[in-house]
């Protein structure tokens, strides 16, 4: 199930269809993410970018098309969800740390419960991933004692502790002010430098331009334009021109 020749993409979507009632959210979406690649999904609100991301981790079931993630056929009803989610890490806009657990317990929960890791080993791991996001001193704090940026970094650490093969970021800085945003983005930059495969839905165009290997611009449920980060400065379609021209392109 897990054998994955390096030539094969880690994530691939082919002609994916998805409707919420009469509303067609994804209308034949196709893209692929190679190992070590950083892909930014951009587009207006309602363009389907978040839905596309959630389909990868099967938080939404697709109506048609094919999704393969780390060898798992995500579009099939019999996909092993727990195996899929051990290979895929996801971080949300609202952090979603568990408020009744300390940061350490938030991080060790899944490695212990899912992978059967010993407590001592999981604690070492918690220290390691917290160091990665610069939060070692918050090991024993509760989420409510942390700022938004710290909570989001802790959420990233929690996801990293499962050692995913690909990480999904769903507008993870949208709830943060610019200063806190930049501390979270620094963590992402470091992950990219370490070679983590990432798919991110983002409104931070300047950041997408700086870090993404490839941009997928979505418009009305379709992949409207795709290419290297340079398409943000020289878009070929009028829709992307308008999108980047409406003040979205910072820095």
């Amino acid at each position: 199930m897990q054998q994955n020749p390096s030539s094969e993409p880690i994530v691939s979507l082919r002609d994916v269809q998805k409707s919420f009632g009469p509303l067609r959210v994804l209308d034949g979406v196709s893209f692929a993410v190679q190992r070590g690649e950083v892909l930014a999904l951009i587009g207006r609100s309602g363009s389907g970018k978040s839905t596309a991301l959630r389909c990868i981790d099967r938080f939404e079931k697709v109506d048609g098309g094919e999704i393969v993630v780390c060898g798992h056929r995500v579009d099939r009803p019999d996909v092993d969800l727990r195996a899929l989610r051990q290979d895929v890490g996801i971080v949300f806009q609202s952090y979603n740390l568990f408020p009744h657990l300390t940061i350490e317990q938030n991080i060790t929960l899944a490695p212990c419960a899912v992978k059967g890791m010993a407590t001592a080993q999981a604690r070492d791991l918690a220290r390691k991933v917290l160091a990665q996001v610069g939060l070692e001193e918050k090991l024993h704090a509760y989420p409510e004692q942390l700022s938004g940026g710290q909570q989001q970094r802790a959420a990233i650490a929690r996801s990293l502790a499962m050692q995913p093969k690909v990480m999904l970021f769903d507008e993870i800085t949208s709830a943060l002010d610019p200063e806190l945003t930049s501390e979270v983005l620094k963590v992402i930059e470091q992950l990219a430098a370490d070679g983590m495969t990432m798919v991110m839905v983002t409104h931070e165009m300047g950041f997408a331009k700086g870090i993404a290997d490839r941009i997928v611009f979505m418009h009305r449920g379709k992949v409207h334009e795709t290419g290297p980060a340079s398409i943000l400065t020289s878009p070929t379609t009028p829709e992307l021109t308008q999108f980047v021209g409406t003040g979205n392109l910072k820095s």
């Binding site: 969800l81 195996a83 051990q86 979603n96 899944a110």
Partner: peptide, 16 residues
Amino acid sequence: KPQWEAAEGLALSRTQ
């Protein structure tokens, strides 16, 4: 509901 999703995203079983 996001608490459920976060737990799901970490591969916890329904019982966990």
